[in-house]
Every structure is written in C-alpha cells, then in structure tokens.
C-alpha cells in the first residue's frame, strides 16, 4: 500500500541538495509569489524558476500534472467571483443584472497566478524531498522531535485508517446498515462507522506509546541518525542569501518600493 507522499526518487542534482536548501528555494518562490507587484512577474516565477527546477529534478511531467490539476478549481471560481463581483468600468459581457468586467478578470488572473506559484512550489518540494529527510533536517535545527514524529506518522498512518474505515463500512453493510440513499440516511450511517474507527484507534494509542517507549523514544540524552544529510558551504551561503532576498522582498512590498 502506498503512502500519500508525492516524493519521486530520481537521480538528480536537485534531489541531492540538502533539504533546507530545497526549502529555501521553495520559500523564495513563495515569498516572490506573494510580494511581486506585477502578475506577469509572478507567472515568470512559475515559468522561469519553478518549471526549470522541476525539469532539472527530472520530475517535470508530474509537476505540471499536479500543479495544473490543483489550480483549475481556483482559476474557475476566482474568475466567476471576481469577474462578476469585483468593481470595474470595462464590461465584457452582460448577463441580466450581472456583468463580467475586465478589472475582475485581471484581479482573478493575479490571484490565480499567485496561488499557482504557492501550490506548485510546495508540490515541487514534496516531489524532490523525502519527508523523513526534511523532518530530520528540521529537527537537527531545533524543531521538536515530537512534532516531526506527528507529521511523519500522519503521512503513513492516514491511509491505514482509510483502509480500516473501509473494512468497518463493509462489515456494517454486511449487518444490514444502509449507506446509500438520502442525506439523513447517510448521516445516520456515519455513527456506526465512525464510532468503531475512533474507539479502536484510541485503544491502540497505549500500544503505540509502549512500542515507542521500548525503543527509547523518550530517553534523555543525545541522539544520532542513520541518515546523514550532506551539506556544503555554498549551499549554506545560498540559504542565507535566500533569506536576505526574502526579507528584502517583504520589506520592499511593505514599504511600497515595488509598484505595478
């Protein structure tokens, strides 16, 4: 059974970068997406930075597929809402009392471009970074281990819960539970489904905790790691530089130095 991670193992230079360097790259794209004043510049971040990075990491097809799949609901709803309801002068289409305006479409395009950059930057990070290595890098820099553990476990355990929910659903159906039909019927069917799922999960908590205790999870003292993350001086310099650029972008936007 698969885990809900997007990670694609590839032999690329991008994959071999330190997870924090990848995080800095993606952070830079996200901050740029939020602060750049011109829509075309934001689109340029996607076309000229994120897409080439994805190609470098040998994950371009998956990157394009995921980012386009995720963005179209935003594009559609933003175009409808902003197009018809944002104030503007240039009417493109009149539908009874409603009018589609150019200003609204431009606003929708701007929002869509920014959301596209944010979402696809995160997708790219997930495509090229193993979650456990990212968490290792973050815990090495001070993220509490418990938080890292919760995130990683959630990634792997959620699909098992889905599997169990299906088993419970099947067995309740076998006992005559009606799960098809109108809303009230479906809602009523939820109780015999959710209750065993939650109860069994709570009962398992003790066993999980004990299994971790037996392996020294709460032991005091220094820890080591089987995995070592390779870091280099240029990568470290790049991360500092990215941080400075991010701060400058935010400052420039806040102070109004960048305008359309």
């Amino acid at each position: 059974m698969s885990t809900p991670t997007l990670y694609l193992p590839r032999d690329s230079r991008l994959h071999h970068l330190h997870p924090l360097t990848k995080l800095a790259l993606i952070g830079l794209a996200i901050v740029a997406g939020a602060t750049l004043p011109v829509t075309l510049w934001v689109i340029a971040v996607y076309l000229l930075i994120l897409m080439p990075l994805a190609a470098w990491g040998k994950v371009l097809p998956a990157f394009l597929r995921s980012s386009l799949l995720l963005i179209w609901p935003f594009a559609l709803s933003l175009t409808l809402i902003q197009g018809f309801f944002a104030p503007g002068e240039h009417i493109l289409l009149q539908l009874g009392p409603l009018s589609l305006k150019l200003e609204g479409i431009q606003l929708a395009a701007d929002y869509t471009a920014r959301i596209l950059v944010w979402l696809s930057a995160v997708i790219l990070l997930m495509l090229i970074t193993r979650p456990d290595q990212l968490m290792l890098a973050l815990t090495e820099r001070g993220l509490p281990r418990q938080i890292g553990y919760i995130i990683l476990t959630a990634l792997q355990i959620i699909p098992r819960f889905q599997q169990r929910a299906e088993t419970i659903l099947d067995s309740q159906r076998a006992r005559g539970l009606e799960t098809e039909g109108n809303l009230v019927k479906r809602l009523r069917a939820l109780v015999p489904l959710v209750a065993p799922l939650i109860l069994s999960s709570i009962l398992e908590l003790d066993e999980r905790a004990i299994a971790l205790e037996a392996r020294g999870f709460t032991r005091a003292g220094p820890r080591t790691s089987l995995t070592t993350l390779k870091d280099t001086a240029p990568q470290s310099a790049f991360r500092w530089l990215s941080l400075i650029v991010m701060l400058l972008l935010i400052l420039a936007r806040a102070a109004g130095w960048m305008t359309a």
């Binding site: 990683l152 066993e207 392996r215 020294g216 999870f217 032991r219 820890r223 080591t224 790691s225 070592t228």
Partner: peptide, 25 residues
C-alpha cells in the same frame, strides 16, 4: 501497532531504537 510510522524504510525502522540510544552512525 509496533511500527513507529515515522520511518519510510525497513532499515530506517530498525535503526530508530539505536538512534534514540545515541549509538554512533
């Protein structure tokens, strides 16, 4: 219930206890 869920490979899972004990790599 005994699988930690925080490791993505069998190797990583087996190593977890030793990592917690601070054993050299």
């Amino acid at each position: 219930n005994q699988i930690s869920g925080s490791r993505f490979s069998v190797r990583g899972e087996v190593a977890l206890g030793l990592e917690n004990l601070g054993v050299p790599r």
